[in-house]
């Protein structure tokens, strides 16, 4: 996603916001402003809900020094999409899981939303979501991360996530012995 575009949009939407306080303005660590639906922000983020309720929202842009502009743009994008999304099939019970696992399954659009992110952008978003207390977005992003791990060998997982194997040979052997019951089948 182009940052410039986000900036342009932010400035444009800020003007709208001055007339219409249904939104709040958030400021990234690098000083960019983003407009987000107040309702969605309060519903999706416990931290923003607390700030809105406590009156600590700054009309000129509430500082979120911990979040870079790209991640904040994704957060805002997610909130605004959420504000506009109609629950699928109109009925809560439309997605019954038969044989699938018990997860709070992401909706199709949420899946697409995280699928398009680069590796780093995904983790920036996880950290931002965690910082802002966004439970649903954490579910969606953690789901994506687990999908990236599923069905892979430890070596493949290390490669995908750049995890450095800091075990000594002896330690690794010890773990394998300790967990022999889990590897019994392999």
């Amino acid at each position: 996603m182009e940052v410039d575009k986000g900036k342009g949009e932010a400035e444009e939407t800020r003007k709208v916001a001055e007339a219409d306080r249904d939104t709040v303005t958030l400021k990234s660590s690098d000083g960019k402003l983003f407009e987000v639906s107040k309702e969605a922000a309060a519903r999706l983020s416990t931290v923003l809900a607390g700030m809105i309720a406590g009156g600590s929202i700054d009309d000129n842009g509430t500082d979120l020094k911990q979040i870079g502009s790209e991640a904040l743009e994704n957060v805002v994008d997610y909130c605004n999409k959420h504000a506009n999304s109609i629950p699928s099939a109109a009925l809560i019970s439309s997605s019954i899981s038969f044989n699938t696992a018990p997860f709070k399954e992401p909706e199709e659009w949420e899946r697409k939303f995280v699928d398009r992110l680069s590796h780093d952008a995904l983790f920036d978003l996880v950290e931002a979501a965690n910082f802002l207390g966004m439970e649903r977005l954490l579910d969606v992003t953690c789901h994506k991360i687990s999908e990236m791990m599923k069905g892979k060998s430890p070596d493949q997982i290390r490669e995908v996530f750049n995890i450095k194997n800091d075990y000594t040979k002896e330690e690794l052997e010890e773990i394998r012995q300790e967990l022999a019951w889990a590897f019994y089948d392999d």
Partner: peptide, 21 residues
């Protein structure tokens, strides 16, 4: 968060994450 990620894996793969690092 890592607990949440591991929770989404089948149990066998969850246990095997202990060899990562």
């Amino acid at each position: 968060l890592l607990h949440s990620v591991i929770s989404l894996l089948p149990a066998k793969e969850a246990v095997c994450t202990s060899v990562l690092s």
